[in-house]
């Protein structure tokens, strides 16, 4: 069976896997973004705290994904839970790092001006600092998404959702008729998804970055 015949006859299943893959990545990116920005906001004003946050999240990223999931299975069991936890942890680093860099990069004179005209700490953060730090944060989120696209494939090892199932099944049955097609379909599916997401980020940037600071 040729590759396109394979894709044609398993279309339903592939689409379902792709949907699950995208959905898992999207949800984890959202969680990682919220948590990452929160960590950034809490730590960026103190040198040691910011250092600790960046070091910890980079240390997490150095753990091989297979090992991470392997370690999580005894704790949280198989399926969705280890996948979501692992993906969220991996997604933190780019978001945290860019949030800290972005918030620190806000011109101190502007923060001073915001204070001087009577903005409270919370208002300053929401109206001035986060909007100005948003472009680098968005870049961090984009990087996190690309990263998680690939790592999510490993989730199939823990019986998680997504296109990784195709790849793993193919690897498990190497030499059989459809093995190569399965690996190829999973991989290409992930690449296509990654490209689609990237395009979505360009659009998101257009919509959310204020015109006054768009490059």
């Amino acid at each position: 069976m040729g590759f396109w015949d394979y894709v044609g006859s398993y279309r339903e299943k592939l689409l379902f896997d792709a949907y699950q893959h995208a959905s898992a990545v999207l949800q984890c990116v959202v969680v990682a973004t919220v948590a990452g920005v929160a960590i950034g906001v809490v730590t960026y004003r103190r040198e040691w705290a910011a250092g600790l946050a960046t070091t910890t999240t980079s240390a997490l990223l150095t753990v091989p994904s297979l090992a991470m999931i392997g370690l999580l299975i005894p704790v949280v069991g198989l399926g969705v839970a280890p996948t979501v936890i692992a993906l969220t942890l991996y997604g933190l680093l780019p978001v945290v790092r860019n949030a800290i860099v972005g918030l620190r990069g806000v011109d101190p004179a502007l923060v001073d001006a915001a204070k001087g005209i009577g903005m409270s700490r919370a208002r300053r953060l929401l109206r001035v600092e986060l909007p100005l730090a948003w472009p680098p944060i968005l870049t961090g989120v984009r990087v996190a998404t690309q990263l998680l696209m690939g790592i999510a494939a490993i989730a199939a090892y823990a019986s998680g959702p997504g296109l990784g199932n195709e790849i793993f099944r193919g690897i498990a049955s190497l030499g059989s008729a459809n093995a190569l097609n399965q690996v190829l379909a999973g991989t290409l599916g992930i690449v296509v998804l990654a490209l689609l997401f990237d395009a979505a980020y360009v659009l998101l940037g257009r919509l959310t970055i204020p015109r006054g600071i768009r490059g």
């Binding site: 004179a109 502007l110 001073d112 001006a113 915001a114 204070k115 001087g116 005209i117 009577g118 903005m119 409270s120 109206r127 001035v128 909007p131 100005l132 204020p210 006054g212 600071i213």
Partner: peptide, 22 residues
């Protein structure tokens, strides 16, 4: 301090305008 500053106009060097706002 926040209340106090709202009652005092403040203008600084290079205007301190927020670039993301009109």
């Amino acid at each position: 301090p926040v209340e106090l500053r709202r009652g005092i106009g403040y203008a600084i060097q290079s205007s301190g305008l927020f670039p993301h706002l009109t």
